[in-house]
């Protein structure tokens, strides 16, 4: 569903991604891990078309993002880490706006909207303006907007931040159900327990490079009791002495 080929992104005086190759299969729940500043958000922004690669290609469902961006974007639902929204619209107006951008007709999306808002317990808030929403409520409304057009790929940047335990559980259930019905879930997180519990497959990047990829059991070695230990081992910076030894 997602194919990243030699994906490289340069900013001024910084190479944020350095030749990343990644393949995520249809229906897979894929965790994207890495320390702060590793290039996770840049990768996600490249996948969703917010940034353009310096080199390399992003292919979504067989469609090259650079060549046919609109067709590629039709397949994606995106939940960013900071949900900036149109604050003066109500939640309902915001979802309707999003649905219309994806060319959905009211008959198609209204039942889905009712179902999703009911699952995330936000019906009472739907007609309030977004400016009065809490962080969690904003996260929920973005989640609904990302799911309303039944995307083939859901991309989430830190999806559970700000959600109360019940809402977090509901979101996980929704994503699991979607995955079972063939939707690909790609998400970045710092919550390693979530990745361990939830992902079919995961990748770890550091300094813009892929350093490990595989299932949970493939990533941990014998001496690692859990994913956290494996993650710390894989992303550990070598000390100066080690660098000199290597030289």
């Amino acid at each position: 569903m997602i194919k990243l080929e030699n994906l490289t992104k340069d900013f001024i005086r910084l190479r944020a991604l350095d030749g990343l190759d990644l393949h995520v299969k249809k229906g897979e729940i894929f965790g994207f891990l890495g320390p702060n500043g590793a290039g996770k958000t840049t990768t996600i922004r490249l996948i969703t078309g917010l940034l353009q690669p310096t080199f390399g290609r992003v292919i979504i469902g067989g469609i090259d993002m650079a060549e046919r961006p609109r067709h590629a974007k039709h397949q994606i639902g995106y939940v960013p880490d900071h949900p900036f929204l149109y604050d003066r619209l109500s939640g309902r107006e915001f979802i309707e706006f999003q649905a219309q951008l994806f060319l959905l007709k009211p008959d198609n999306f209204k039942p889905k909207l009712d179902e999703l808002t009911d699952t995330l317990s936000m019906d009472e808030w739907l007609d309030e303006r977004i400016e009065s929403y809490s962080r969690g409520m904003r996260q929920k409304i973005v989640m609904v907007s990302a799911l309303i057009h039944d995307p083939q790929l859901i991309v989430l940047d830190e999806p559970l931040v700000g959600l109360d335990p019940k809402a977090a559980k509901n979101v996980k259930d929704i994503l699991l159900r979607r995955s079972e019905s063939g939707t690909t879930i790609f998400f970045s997180t710092h919550t390693l327990s979530l990745a361990q519990e939830f992902c079919h497959n995961m990748a770890i990047i550091n300094h813009g490079r892929l350093i490990a990829q595989g299932t949970y059991s493939e990533l941990i070695e014998k001496q690692d009791p859990d994913l956290e230990t494996a993650f710390l081992r894989l992303t550990e910076e070598p000390s100066e002495a080690e660098i000199q030894d290597g030289d």
């Binding site: 067709h71 960013p80 900036f84 929204l85 951008l101």
Partner: peptide, 12 residues
């Protein structure tokens, strides 16, 4: 505003 990401990620 910062909600522009929404338009950039939409098939628009």
């Amino acid at each position: 505003g910062q909600a522009f990401w929404l338009l950039k990620t939409a098939p628009l």
